[in-house]
Design a protein around this nucleic acid. Structure first.
Length: 423
DNA sequence: TCTGGGGTCCTAGGACCC
DNA sequence: TCTGGGGTCCTAGGACCC
């Protein structure tokens, strides 16, 4: 049996732990650059605010005091997530951390699974302040749906238990029969539209469809989903995350950029971020891709978007080497007289740093380069990100991502600890 | 005025190998 | 009349996830 734990409205719930004034009120957390809503409290959902709704459409509600809007604070969310995952790891034999706010875990060998899960929800609530729901089922897909059912029930009735168990067919089949097919994990809007044309509108109808036929008509993914809905497990628990195959850093600018110098700065900055991630996972990259684009929503400007990429002669995690190559790639595609909105970078063909063969003919000693980077990382870890950087990155970043409504780093910066006062 | 970011997997077709 | 069989690698595009 597999369980899925999912923290309710995760980003909003993290903000509420630190700022109780947000409890019970409509709250949304915005994407990077304060662009769109990516997390909504139940009260905000009740106001009709959609996932991905642009922030500027919500200004009116904020101004009239009916909605609180916050920038995202990933430092806080990452830390809160780690606390929850630790509680889970301490109590269950096998955990797959599936995303920042979700984890699958194995219930094999646990007596009274429902009671165990209910205790878990209580413990997480007491120790971290975060509300969560657990779904249980014979497969990951059914555990997901059980979790969804638990969320729906607790939204309608806060007194409802936060655990739903879909182990028994009689418990799950009636729910599946009434559930829209696009709520099923793995069925997105495109597949759902095609299924609708074939007369499959509910999760129950998908469960009862001919798996073989749909495999040929759609793909093996749909076939697996059908089998999983019937209780036949096709997806295993992945306890050790597979190594990343690519690292992407792409952000839209806080303000439009038409100056090529600023564009180069931004790219250099993103290379530094991506290369830092690369070194943290002890890998080197063999390929660099760069792209840039104008704002697709702005109809008054000339639209322009290009990508360019290079293989590296020798895989590396050296910020300087990667940066030089990335700048060369960008030089070949950027034009003057364009108002840019976004530049992005992808490092791929990642391999473990210690699997790199030596280079007999080059005078450069890669180990020396690696030591230089290790020193840079050590200084920046101790003194703050960007203390030592490439001159190319510059200092006054007019293009930097906006985050006008960000809460403090309550749990990770001594200077920003929350203060408790006696009343 | 203002519209996110970071990932994975699957498929089909072409090129190429022995 | 009938013209092999089995495989890999690469790329682009599509779809999905949180």
């Amino acid at each position: 049996m597999i369980a899925l734990l999912d923290i309710n409205n995760f980003y909003v719930s993290c903000e509420r732990v630190m700022n109780p004034a947000l409890v019970g009120r409509p709250v949304v957390v915005l994407s990077n650059n304060d662009g769109v809503a990516i997390a909504r409290s139940n009260e905000a959902k009740a106001l009709g605010i959609g996932m991905g709704q642009p922030a500027h459409e919500l200004r009116g509600l904020v101004r009239s005091g009916r909605l609180r809007m916050l920038s995202s604070n990933y430092t806080l969310y990452g830390d809160m997530s780690a606390r929850v995952m630790q509680i889970l790891a301490d109590r269950t034999p096998a955990v797959e951390v599936y995303s920042i706010d979700e984890a699958f875990f194995d219930l094999e060998g646990i007596r009274n699974p429902a009671g165990f899960c209910a205790d878990l929800v209580t413990t997480i609530g007491r120790w971290t302040g975060l509300p969560c729901c657990v779904g249980v089922g014979p497969t990951k897909t059914l555990a997901k749906l059980a979790n969804y059912a638990a969320k729906q029930a607790s939204r309608l009735d806060p007194a409802h238990t936060s655990v739903v168990d879909f182990t028994a067919r009689h418990a799950r089949d009636p729910v599946l029969d009434a559930l829209a097919v696009d709520q099923v994990w793995g069925v997105g809007p495109r597949i759902a539209a095609r299924l609708a044309k074939d007369g499959i509108l509910t999760a129950g109808q998908l469960r009862d469809a001919q798996a073989r036929r749909l495999r040929h008509q759609y793909s093996v993914v749909v076939e697996r989903t059908i089998l999983e809905l019937r209780g036949q497990a096709c997806l295993a628990l992945e306890m050790t995350p597979p190594p990343r195959k690519q690292i992407v850093c792409a952000k839209s600018f806080g303000a439009p950029v038409s100056n090529l110098g600023e564009l180069r700065q931004a790219l250099a900055h993103y290379v530094a971020i991506a290369a830092g991630k690369l070194r943290r996972q002890q890998c080197v990259a063999g390929h660099v891709q760069v792209w840039l684009a104008t704002n697709p929503f702005n109809e008054r400007i000339t639209q322009y978007s290009r990508a360019n990429s290079f293989p590296l002669p020798r895989a590396t995690a050296d910020t300087g080497v990667l940066s030089t190559l990335a700048q060369r790639a960008m030089r070949q595609i950027c034009r003057g007289g364009i108002t840019y909105h976004r530049v992005g970078l992808m490092l791929s063909e990642l391999t473990a740093e210690d699997s790199q063969p030596g280079d007999l003919f080059s005078g450069n000693d890669p180990r020396r380069q690696a030591r230089l980077m290790a020193s840079l990382d050590a200084i920046n870890t101790k003194m703050g990100r960007g203390t030592v950087r490439l001159a190319r990155e510059g200092f006054n970043h007019a293009w930097a991502t906006r985050a006008d409504r960000r809460s403090p780093a309550y749990t990770t910066q001594l200077a920003q600890l929350p203060v408790a006062r006696a009343v």
